[in-house]
Structures are given as C-alpha cells and as structure tokens.
Write a protein that binds this DNA or RNA. Sequence first.
DNA 1: GCCTAACCGAGACGGTACGTCACGTCTTTTA
DNA 2: TAAAAGACGTGACGTACCGTCTCGGTTAGGC
Lengths: 211, 211, 211, 211
Amino acid sequence: MSLAESGTGVEQPGRGRPRSEAVERAIIEGTMKLLEEGVPLGEVSIERIARTAGVGKATIYRRWSGKEELFVDVLRAAEPADPELPGTSLRDDLIVLLESVRRRGLATRSSAILHNVRAQMKSSPRIWAAYHNTVVEPRRRIGLEVVRRGQENGELRTDLDRELLYDIFVGPMLVRAVLHPDSDLAEGLAERMVDALLAGLRPVSSPETRH
Amino acid sequence: MSLAESGTGVEQPGRGRPRSEAVERAIIEGTMKLLEEGVPLGEVSIERIARTAGVGKATIYRRWSGKEELFVDVLRAAEPADPELPGTSLRDDLIVLLESVRRRGLATRSSAILHNVRAQMKSSPRIWAAYHNTVVEPRRRIGLEVVRRGQENGELRTDLDRELLYDIFVGPMLVRAVLHPDSDLAEGLAERMVDALLAGLRPVSSPETRH
Amino acid sequence: MSLAESGTGVEQPGRGRPRSEAVERAIIEGTMKLLEEGVPLGEVSIERIARTAGVGKATIYRRWSGKEELFVDVLRAAEPADPELPGTSLRDDLIVLLESVRRRGLATRSSAILHNVRAQMKSSPRIWAAYHNTVVEPRRRIGLEVVRRGQENGELRTDLDRELLYDIFVGPMLVRAVLHPDSDLAEGLAERMVDALLAGLRPVSSPETRH
Amino acid sequence: MSLAESGTGVEQPGRGRPRSEAVERAIIEGTMKLLEEGVPLGEVSIERIARTAGVGKATIYRRWSGKEELFVDVLRAAEPADPELPGTSLRDDLIVLLESVRRRGLATRSSAILHNVRAQMKSSPRIWAAYHNTVVEPRRRIGLEVVRRGQENGELRTDLDRELLYDIFVGPMLVRAVLHPDSDLAEGLAERMVDALLAGLRPVSSPETRH
DNA sequence: GCCTAACCGAGACGGTACGTCACGTCTTTTA
DNA sequence: TAAAAGACGTGACGTACCGTCTCGGTTAGGC
C-alpha cells in the first residue's frame, strides 16, 4: 500500500479502468535500478524514473505526490525483513537484533545509495514521519518488547526505564551502521557488544543469571 | 577558510581587487536567515541565496562550486564550539561529552533545519567527507582520547578496543539526538547514561565495581 | 449527419446498443455553451467538452476524429439559415443577399467566438475543405445563380464573368463582416452598396443606367 | 521591435547582460523555417521552436509572452513591403494597390502556412488587435488616402463616404486572396476589377474624366 | 595619479526538471 | 455493444534553477 493510498483512504473499486499493479512495480523497480546503477541521487528525477520505467510522468504523480513520497515506498520495498527472534534468552534476542542492524549497515554499504535516500528523506518532516511510522517505529517496538521480557525474566535491571535500556543496547551498533557506514562492522561485533553491555546491566543481586 | 579555497590551494594575493570578506559573511548569513525562517530546504536555491544576500550569483560560484559545499561552511559556522573537558575523572569527562551531544540535539530541534542540512549532505559522498573530516572526526578524536585516558588511569576495561568503547558511550545519546530528535532529551540524561554504562565497563579486578 | 459519419459511410443499424442521438446533441450543445460563456477557444478541450456534456471522451471520439471536425458540426448547427430570395429583381435579390452577410457579421460580433472558430478551422486544410464544401460553397452557388439570372434578364453586363461579378458584389460586405468585424455595419448599408455597385455594372446599351 | 517590448515601454539600458539581437533573429527565422517546411501549425510548439533555433525556452518567454505574440512578429517579418504608389492617376494607384493584394494572395498560397498563422491569430482578440494595428490598419490608411485624392481630383463620386469606396475597391480582391485563396488570381485581374468598379463610381456629370 | 586586473551587481544564455494538462487509446463496470 | 469513468504513454505548457557568460561599474594594488 503506497503512501498516497494510505492517506486518501479506501477507493471504491468499480469506476473506470483500475490502476495497474504492474505499472506500480515497474516504477519502484525502475527507481531502484537507477540507484543501483550509481546514478547520483540528485540526478534521479521523476522524469528520468518515468523514462527508465517506460511510464508517463502523470502515472507516477497519480500515485505519489512527489519524489520523496515515492522514495518512502522504494525504501520500504528494499528494506530486509525483520529477523525472527529466538526467544531463548535476552542475550540471544539482543544478538539477533543487533546482527540485523549490522547486516542492514552492510547491505546499505553495498548498494550505498539506499543509505543516502534514507538520509535525504529527513529533509521533509512529513516524509520522514511516514518512513518513521511504517519502518523505524515497528522495529523499535520489537526491541522494546525484548527489553520488557528481559526485565520480567530477571535478566535486566529494572531501575532503568525501557527506552533508555533499548537505546543503550541498539545505539552503539546503530551509530556504526547508520552514521558511520564506513566504520568496522566485523562479524562477531554484535556478540561482543551485547556481552560488554549486559555486564553492567544485569540485576544487582541477581539470584540466578540463567547461564 | 572555505571548502573551495582549501581545495584550490593558495591564491596569490596581489593582482586585482581582492575578494570582499563582507560579501562572504553576507552569503553565509543570508543562507542561515533563509533556513531559520523555515524555508524548506529544497527551496533554498543559489538564486534565492544570492537574492537574499544582495549578491550576484557569480559571486557565490566564485567561492563555492555548488550549494552543497556552501552548506558545509554554513554548517561549520553554525556548529556550537566543542566543550571544555574537566579532566577530573573519566565519569566527569564522559558526562560533559554526552551533555554536548544532548545539547546539540536540543539546538538542532529548535532550529530544526540545520539537522536536515546535515542529513542532506550525506547525499554527496564528497561533501559528506568534507564535513566529516572537519567537524565529525575531530570530535570523535576527542572522545577516543577520553577513552584512552580512562583505560590508562584504570577506570576502564582494557580488553575492549577503544573504538568499541567510544561507540558504546556515545551511541545511545547520539541515536536519540540525531536519529530520533523528537525523543526525550531530559536534563540529567547524560549522567544516568554514563553511570549505567560504566557499571559494566570498569576493570574486572576493580575493588568497588559500583560505588 | 456528422463529418465523421459522412466519412465512414453508412452503419448497419441492428448490432448492439444504438448510438444515442441525445448524446450527440448534448456534445454539440455543450460545446456551444462553453463558447458562449466566453471560454477562450484554446481552453475548449475535448476533455472539457466531455465534462460539460457529462459524456465520456471515447463517446466523442466515436463520432468525430478530433476537435476540428467536431467544430465543423458545431458551426453548422450555429449558422443561420440561408435567406429566401424574393426574385423580383437583381437589385432586390442582391440586397437580400448582402443583408444576410451583414446580419451574419452582426451575429458573429455578438457571440464573437463563433467567428474565431471559423478562423481556427483554416488551420487544417481538411477541415476547412469540409466547412467550405458544406457551408461556404452552397452559399456561393446561390449568389452565382443570382448573377446569372441578372445577366439573362439584361440587368447586368455580360462581358464580365460571373465569378468576378459575384466577388464584386459580395466582397465589400464580406470584408467588413468577416475581416473587420468591428467596422461599421449600419442598417441600409446593403442597399447603398448594391446601388453604388450596380451603377457601373448595368449593360452599356441600357437606356437608363441610373434610375 | 517586438510586441512584448512595445508593451513594456523603454528598458533602462545599463543593468545586466543585454539581450542578444542575434538570438531574436534566430527565433523568428527558426519559426519561419518550421512553417516553410510544412510542419502543421498545431505542431509548431514553443518547445520545438526553441530546439530548432538552438535556444532555451526561457529565452523565448523572456521576449514574448506566448506563441501568439511571437507569431505577430514572425508574420510582421514575413509580410512583403507595401507597394510604391505611382500617383499618376486614381486608376493607376488602385491597380497597384490591388496588385499587391493579389500578389500577397499568391505568396500566401505558395508558403501556404503563413496564411493559417494569420487566421490563427484571430483566436485571440488581443493578438489580432496587435497585428491589426501594426500591419492591417497602416495598409488601410494608404488605401483611404488614395480614395481621398481620387475624390479631390474629381476622379471619384463624392456622395459616397471614403470607407465605403475603399471597401468596394479592395473587397473583391481581398475576398479572393484571403478568404478563398484557392480561387483564380490570374494576372490582369486587378486591372479588370478596377475598370469594372470605376465605371460606375466616377462623378455623375464629370466635365473632364481625365481619360 | 593613472593603469589594469579582478571584483561586484545584474541578468541573459542554453539547459533540464518541475508539476499540470490535454491528447487519443485502452481497459474496466454497468446498462 | 454502447456508455461513463478513468488509467495509460506521450508530449507541450510556462516556471524555476542550474552553472556559465557578458555587461557596466567599482576597488584595490603597482607603476
């Protein structure tokens, strides 16, 4: 479901020729093709996307109100799926979580431009909000849930609020992956980080540390 | 010294009318004025900057090769000064460091656009590198030095490399300040963070791990 | 019968849903409505006509192959009927003829746009030919017949060919009515013109050249 | 002097780079080239003119506010010069006058499109007025002067107003040349017309008809 | 006190992209 | 099968900026 559609609500189906889903895919894939080919972001114009996708400009504007809202959907289509959490322990869940952040940093680096597209989106509060709500926030919610379970199971201090704990766990990796994408993202980094962080965040007088 | 000048090397001074420094200031301040007035970043064109500053377009191009390089200098002029470190203890230094990150997040929120300018710059690797080298990297260097002193003084585990430790300290606050600028940046946050993090990162053989 | 139909030949009547004549009228009247409302000719698009007439675009294209051919029929519907000739004398016939030209000039001025539609049509030779054949030429034929009768009855010189005589009679009024529609088209003008022209065009051997 | 300039009055000379006259010529000649090549009038877009003239669109819009006003200047550049009147007699002057109308009809036919451009211009009252004032009206003034001299010299009835006489002389030829450009415009036509018309328009009791 | 080179403002220039609109064609559903 | 509705590829519209290039007019040395 595109940003535009989500804003305008449901459309009654019957009237007139329906919009082609194939066209929608062609536009998003055409945009990706340009980005993957290394076309500088500033040269990825609606006009050029239309040419690449073999589509009229109006067909794009019928679906998205501008380049930025199109990019939200392009990014959404390019984002890797959220990871399956093992649920065996706080440590295991955190490692999987940070691993996915790390891999996203790597993937971003390989097709380096997607990274910039994400950065670009912050130019418009409206667009950033759309991306934040549909991609960033759900992910954060998953992490907060992991923290909550950790506190419930006695694996984590309860005198710090969940938000703070979440940022402490994810922040270091996120900074590397997103803000310094050219930094070291070696394998095993997630495990080392989690262990270093957990060392001081377990309950003070924890009877059973569970492993 | 502007990015352009730094790239093109020294200019012999004598020949012809020298460039006016007043004009240079007018351009940078005109750009800031536009950004502070809430003009959307996409509408801050060279043409408009020239109009606002009462300056010919060519006068801008004579100094910077494009909008992005101009923005580097605008940002540099707007960045708050790096904080003075007390040097009394690792904990004190880290708190001052994180406080400055926090305040930068607050400042950014108030004049919200500078934030986006910074984001925008990631679109061009060349520009991002310039900003990174002259603003981001020096700051990181200061932080790494703090970490190094902490390890030397026996206030910090030495089995983790400095880069990792630095990211662990700064990452959580940076994520809040830069990636989620609408998140909670309450006063005292820096202190709480530093304490929570130091808890597990003091040397193992330290007599009192938690004061 | 529309231009399109006349070109495509007879349609077999039986097959499927028959075309609605009401729709045909709605289209032509919708077009006139737009023109009478003073919509600039350039803004009278097929799309707008369809909207005004409450009709699908395809329904228009099913009947006419373009805006110009539609205009031929619109104009044809708007043209006033040819006048009844008294036949009592050459002078009387000519006056009636010129009067109708004059009145057409006046009508044109009041709903000034029809005039421009006619002008517009000259842009396409094909369209102009269609209009010429079905509207202009029949009228000319009537006038030539008047001239012929005048020569036969001895009211007109026979040493000048009919075409020339016709143009001499109609030209002056036509120029005023069509080319200079803001010129003087006072009542009685037709009579004065005919008299002035007939003065030198009666047969030479006529006993009384001027009554 | 272009239509636009004539409307905006004098421009102060000094400020900024002056407009290139060569560019102005290139645009007008490019437009003519397209018309002469037989490009249908509807396909002569500003975009295409710009491409043909090797010029940016903005450069055209800087001088003319639209296609129609450009066409006024194109037409003005294409119009043949007004003829030199011999002044030896009314008959001679009229023949020269009608000859120029006839030749204009012929020229128009050869490069048939200019004719349509003129027709097209009637679509906009404003444009037509501009063309009328700078091309049509001056010509009419010359003709009226010929008529005036004819009456003064006793070569023409004085009981008919000059406007009427002028239309009677020029109308027949104009109708052929402009409204029916595919009609017969044989050589000698002007002479025959003038003689036929003068026959009845000389003063009634003229003592000396001056041959 | 000139000379001259580079500066400065203004704005024209060839381009390119913008977002809108109309073109004429093509699916849809409904009647 | 016609009809209304409206999506579709195409391409022109008029505007705004891009970065470059003249213009006339400063503004500094160096002579």
